[in-house]
């Protein structure tokens, strides 16, 4: 059993990089940890790895936000380092009811095809009235005592979309200028498992988009309504951008 030392940070969308916040939370954690371990070198190492993982996650979000999908894919572990099992082992992303695995090319399909086609992943402010609660905005990073693996929870607030499933002229013409996509807003939390690769670099082993709310919101609108979006229902290759399996 791995000895996991838990550290929690309060993190709000858009304020993660605030120096003041980092400084304040860092102090409070240092106090909290004083009573949980006397291994100060380990404590320092854990703190350092947490910082690295937070930066790693920021880089992940930024790469998604800017459409640098190859960079995103490179942040995932290679399958050779992780056996795929029916119980959920193996490097994978869970997105809207679909499991995209690395060894099948599923993660590449997700980020190189589904995300760009649906204009998915760009950070946006929460839809008015749909802001996550304080509890939902809590993030956490838990690093194992051997400093080789970690679990994290981070909130997200992103644009999601789906290309119009029609060959109507309206959709075909909209595609000429990069439109033809039904867009909405999603807020939720990432559940992420990390582990270090042979070179000691953090990689994502498992990432799940746990969507808490959706709304028909796009930047500039003054109001939003909740919407229902069907979970993915078809796997690859029936759906060319589809998952390897359904949850």
């Amino acid at each position: 059993m791995k000895n996991i030392l838990r550290r929690s940070f309060i993190w709000k969308v858009g304020t993660a990089a605030s120096a003041a916040l980092v400084s304040t939370t860092g102090l409070s954690i240092a106090k909290a940890d004083t009573g949980t371990t006397s291994n100060l070198p380990l404590q320092a190492a854990l703190l350092e790895e947490e910082k690295v993982l937070r930066k790693f996650h920021q880089a992940f979000e930024q790469a998604i936000n800017n459409g640098r999908y190859e960079e995103v894919i490179g942040m995932f572990a290679h399958d050779s380092e992780e056996r795929d099992t029916a119980e959920g082992g193996g490097v994978r992303v869970v997105f809207n009811g679909g499991v995209f695995k690395v060894h099948t090319g599923g993660i590449r399909r997700l980020y190189r095809e589904r995300f760009p086609a649906g204009k998915i992943g760009r950070r946006m402010e929460p839809a008015p009235g749909f802001e996550l609660t304080d509890d939902q905005q809590h993030d956490s990073v838990e690093v194992s005592s051997d400093l080789r693996s970690a679990k994290a929870v981070f909130p997200y607030s992103i644009q999601v979309g789906m290309p119009f499933q029609t060959e109507s002229s309206l959709a075909a013409m909209a595609r000429l200028h990069g439109e033809g996509v039904r867009l909405w807003w999603e807020g939720g939390v990432y559940h992420i498992d990390y582990r270090k690769d042979a070179d000691g670099r953090w990689k994502i082993r498992r990432l799940e988009y746990d969507t808490l709310s959706r709304a028909d919101y796009r930047a500039g609108k003054s109001y939003a309504q909740p919407i229902f979006v069907s979970r993915l229902v078809a796997c690859f290759p029936a759906d060319p951008h589809g998952p390897d399996e359904l949850v």
């Binding site: 002229s169 309206l170 013409m173 909209a174 000429l176 200028h177 990069g178 439109e179």
Partner: peptide, 15 residues
């Protein structure tokens, strides 16, 4: 004729 709006509400593709 019909014209499709872009995301920025410019009028673009037309037929």
């Amino acid at each position: 004729s019909w014209v499709i709006f872009t995301g920025a509400q410019a009028l673009g593709a037309e037929w």
